[in-house]
Amino acid sequence: MSRFHVLTPSDEQPAAIPVIRRIGFSDLREALEKGWEDFKVWPTHAIFLCIIYPLVGLVLGGMALGYAVLPLVFPLAAGFALLGPVAALMMYELSRRRERGEPTSIGHAFGVLRSPGFPAIVAIALLLMGLFLLWIATARGLYQSLFGVYGAPDAVVPFLRQVFTTSAGWDLIVYGNIIGFIFALVAFCISVISFPLLLDRDVGAATAIMTSFRAVMVNPVVMAAWGVIVAALLLAGSLPAFIGLAVVMPVLGHATWHLYRKLVI
C-alpha cells in the first residue's frame, strides 16, 4: 500500500535535489511570451471570473450593508499575490501537457488532482492560505491601531480622505506597504516554482520549498525583476474592479511554468 506523503516523495528512494540554472532577463520575456501563447490556446478567463466576481460581490455587498470593509479592500487585492500560485495550478498542468505533446484540453487541467505530489501541493497551498489570513489580520490590526476599532468610514470618499490627508493615514500607507512587502517576499520565495516542480517531479513539499528559495538566491536580481513584473501586472489587472485579473492571472500561471523549466534542470 502506498504511503501518504507530504514532506517527502512517495517513492522509497530519495529524489535527486533539483539543480538551479542561472537565467537572464531575456528568459523572463520568453516565459511571458510562451505564457501568452498558451493562454491563446486555452482562454481560461472564465474560470478566473468565477473566482473574482464573488470576491468583488462580497466587498460591494458589505459596503451596501454598511460594514466597515473598505480598509480590507487593498489587503484583499494584494492577497492575490499570495494565493495566485494556488489559483494557477491548472495553468501549470495545461502548459506542462502542451510542452510534452500530450492530449490537452480544459478537462485535462484537473489532472493535477491525480498528481503523485498532490498531498505536498495541498500542504504548501495551506501554508500560503495561512500567510494570507495572517496578512489580513495584520492589516486589520494595523488599521485599528491607527484609527481605532470604529474608525472605518462606510463610504469611499471619506475613507480616501482619512487615508491621504491625515498623519495616521500616511503611517498606514508606509507601514502597511512595508509589512505587505515582507509577506509577499516570503510567499514569493516559497511558491515561485514549488508548485510547477511538484507537478513535474514527486520531490515532496520540503524539497519543493527549498528549491524555490534556492532559485531566488541563485538569481536574485532576475527573480526580483520577475516579482516586480508579477506585482505590476496584478496591479494593472486589478483596475478596474479586478476584472483584468481574469486574463493576467492565467497568463502569469502559464508563464510561471515556462520560467520553472528555464530555472530547474
Rank of each mutant, 00 (worst) to 15 (best):
R100T: 02
L126E: 01
P220R: 05
A215S: 13
A137Y: 09
I229D: 10
T104H: 02
P116Y: 06
F4V: 02
F213V: 13
W257Y: 08
Q144E: 15
M210A: 15
M249K: 04
G35K: 00
Y53E: 13
L131P: 08
L72H: 12
R114I: 09
W170T: 10
P116D: 02
A231Q: 06
S115A: 02
I51P: 03
T256C: 03
R100I: 06
Y150C: 05
F39L: 04
R97D: 00
V6N: 04
E99G: 12
A184I: 06
L133P: 02
I209W: 06
L198S: 00
K262T: 06
L7S: 10
R201E: 03
E99I: 14
V216Q: 11
F118V: 02
F48D: 00
A109M: 01
V156S: 06
T104A: 06
F25R: 09
P9C: 07
L32A: 03
V86T: 03
S145M: 08
S167G: 14
T165I: 01
I124N: 00
F213R: 11
G148L: 08
A123D: 04
V56H: 14
F181A: 11
T44R: 09
S10N: 07
G111L: 07
G79K: 06
L235D: 12
K40C: 10
G244Q: 08
K34A: 13
S115L: 05
V163H: 12
A231D: 10
S115E: 05
F4K: 01
D202K: 00
W257E: 03
W257R: 04
L58G: 07
R100K: 12
L235C: 13
S212Q: 12
F110K: 02
G107R: 01
V192M: 14
P196F: 03
L94A: 02
L60A: 12
M63I: 15
H45R: 14
V56M: 15
T44W: 02
M63Y: 15
P250E: 04
V19W: 12
A87C: 08
V218S: 07
I20Y: 09
P43K: 09
M223S: 12
R22H: 10
F25S: 07
L58N: 06
L65F: 14
R22Q: 13
L133I: 00
K40M: 10
Y53M: 15
R140V: 06
F195Q: 05
Y260Q: 08
R161Y: 15
V192S: 12
R98I: 05
V264C: 08
F181L: 08
I51Y: 01
L70A: 13
E99R: 15
R3H: 13
G117M: 08
S194R: 08
L126H: 00
F48W: 02
V122G: 01
P250Y: 04
